[in-house]
């Protein structure tokens, strides 16, 4: 396979070949054919992204260690964590659904944050080692299945539902989940996988920028 010049891209949505120009700060390149966003101009984005990822990791640990809400009725007190929701479903026999909740709410976000952290650190000084490519693929897949923002809304609905039956108070974990939802959204909006790939060492050592066509 012979690589083409690096600044020519094919739109992933409509296949149109085009050159992405250097973008001004805050500028956006859109495909003229289908309207898909192709690139953002963000100088210093990698430092900002790293700060977001570190914050997301801290908030993730908090969201999973702390109780989400506590309720009391008839002299009993109950509280739950994110995994507590999955554990109770598992105990009540809905095992597949319990595993899916754990996967979408805990495992996928954790893999996403860890992979992104490693990618952002490793691409600071290009060319990044080959394993960064593997992590970029992990980040893409885990990002697709990470549903913290959906869980956040689910928690709020559950809170209202439960408030009819018992007195319920939100705890630290709930606020942490809310913050995590925002941090993850900011991460996936600000990250440019194409740019990250351009910093990874090529699989075909002989190829690379030197032999690019035109």
């Amino acid at each position: 396979m012979e690589p083409l010049a690096a600044d020519i891209v094919a739109c992933p949505d409509c296949d149109l070949l085009q050159r992405v120009p250097p973008l001004p700060d805050g500028g956006t390149a859109r495909c003229p054919r289908c309207g898909r966003t192709l690139a953002h101009g963000r100088p210093g984005a990698s430092d900002r992204m790293l700060a977001l990822a570190v914050a997301a990791l801290v908030v993730f640990l908090l969201a999973n260690a702390e109780p989400l809400m506590r309720l009391s009725t008839a002299g009993q007190e109950v509280s739950t964590t994110v995994l507590g929701g999955a554990r109770e479903m598992w105990r009540q026999g809905e095992r597949t659904a319990a595993l899916l909740v754990a996967l979408f709410a805990v495992v996928a976000p954790f893999v996403y944050i860890s992979a992104m952290l490693a990618v952002l650190l490793a691409t600071r000084r290009p060319p990044a080692p080959r394993w960064v490519g593997v992590l970029l693929r992990w980040a893409e897949v885990s990002g697709l299945w990470s549903m913290v923002e959906v869980m956040m809304l689910g928690l709020l609905v559950a809170l209202v539902k439960i408030a009819r039956l018992a007195s319920v108070a939100p705890r630290v974990g709930l606020f942490a989940v809310g913050a995590l939802a925002f941090l993850l959204a900011a991460m996936s909006a600000g990250f440019d996988p194409r740019e990250a790939w351009s910093r990874v060492r090529w699989a075909d050592e002989g190829g690379g920028a030197g032999e690019a066509l035109r």
Binding site: G85, A105, G154, L155, V157, A158, I162
Partner: peptide
């Protein structure tokens, strides 16, 4: 998710 947390 709603069901998971109500159940828990």
């Amino acid at each position: 998710f709603v069901v998971a947390f109500v159940v828990a």
